[in-house]
Nucleic acid binder design. Structure first.
Lengths: 221, 221
DNA sequence: CCGGTTTGTGACGAAGTGTAACCGCGTCCG
DNA sequence: CGGACGCGGTTACACTTCGTCACAAACCGG
């Protein structure tokens, strides 16, 4: 299941038991929990109830082998946002995940809490709250909204290959259409402003067949 | 199905076809549409698409005899909030209806008492009870009623993207008409009084395709 | 009713964005 | 070895979105 969702561009972490989930939730912001009812240790329904009573509401999709209605009903009444029975159709799982994420994004309209930091890389400075980029000579470089969003996606995930699908989802909140070149074009514009030549890139490297990678170390402050 | 939901305390109206639904939506506020895919006349999927593109978002649960995955996926991707296959368990239907209603209620949570506080941001002060705005030099700046309401919506929801629909709803209590530019114009007037240049905004930032965002931290007192 | 104020609509231009098209380059495979 | 193919960079252009102006409509206090 990890593989399926990872391929679809989601950032996936797996927990074997309830306590692991608790520790994860303390350390990172989680957009969605896929919760299997059959877990060692604490029962899935009880975890769901706990999540529902927690101060921060994390969307939950219940996954379970038991197809019978009683668990399904209990799951929904406990406040799960959706329910998928095993064995599930992979595309259906992905569609339900997207649907729940879309709903919660619309609900809070804060799917991505805007980072409050300033990021430094190779002499450049990206001030996230002010949405300003300054070059190594401390001159401001004007970025459009889309260019800023794209660069922000990179500096918050440096040294990692990001697929076009991930980038499109993060910067535009939508899925790619077939033959979607949007990211390529936007990236080309961004590279020009960063004065980064794609033949000898120092900032953003192209991973052929994979996506793009922010190659510089990033300091937060 | 009517009877089931009526017994559970819901106020139910039935439409035999798409046009009936349209007329109903014009006359009454509807919390949730249970949409059967198999309808005479306009197809259920097409109705769903229309509802999704409508200015007012009405939650939709799709109901269908076709249990196969393809419709389920299509339904969710078209933006249905949930999906129930016939024959369904009555308690499951009720649970799903309640779940969707709970979610959308949380999303809107419309009841907003008039704030009694004074808000400070970037040197400016907005005195809500007195409806007065003073600039960093402590000079009063005259706001019209609409401008004040708009600014109040922002300072009570800082650092969040607010859509034009939300803003119009909060400040005027009405829905947007197609091509409604009201908020844009009002915002332009507000920006001028706040001396905020839209090309390098420090107070209210435009989120293209999304809405506006109050960028400064706000202190309440 | 009257004059001033506030608000909404339409129009226009500027900016931002997505699509299609072209090109170059590397890879694959016969 | 060479041509076909796929991928990605770039450009051009159409389209969308947004800011603002001007004017009309609605509102409001006498």
């Amino acid at each position: 299941m990890d593989g399926l969702l990872t391929r679809e561009g989601f950032d996936v972490a797996t927990c074997a038991r309830g306590e692991e989930l608790d520790r994860l939730l303390e350390r990172r912001r989680v957009d969605l929990v896929l919760l299997d009812l059959m877990l060692p240790g604490e029962d899935g329904l009880s975890i769901c109830r706990r999540l529902r009573n927690a101060p921060v509401q994390t969307p939950v999709i219940m996954v379970t082998a038991k197809g019978d209605d009683i668990d399904r009903i209990l799951g929904l009444e406990l406040g799960a946002d959706d329910y998928v029975a095993k064995p599930f159709n992979p595309r259906e799982l992905v569609a339900r995940v997207r649907a729940v994420l879309r709903r919660t994004r619309e609900a809070h309209s804060t799917a991505r809490p805007m980072p409050r930091e300033t990021y430094r890389f190779g002499g450049w400075t990206l001030d996230a709250p002010a949405r300003r980029l300054t070059d190594p000579q401390d001159e401001e470089v004007e970025l459009t909204g889309g260019e800023f969003d794209l660069l922000l996606a990179f500096v918050t995930h440096p040294q990692r290959v990001l697929t076009r699908e991930q980038l499109l989802d993060w910067t535009r909140g939508r899925d790619a259409t077939p033959f979607d070149r949007t990211i390529d074009v936007q990236l080309s514009r961004l590279r020009r402003k960063l004065r980064d030549d794609f033949r000898a890139p120092t900032v953003i490297r192209t991973i052929r067949g994979g996506g793009y990678l922010f190659a510089l170390p990033v300091a937060k402050s």
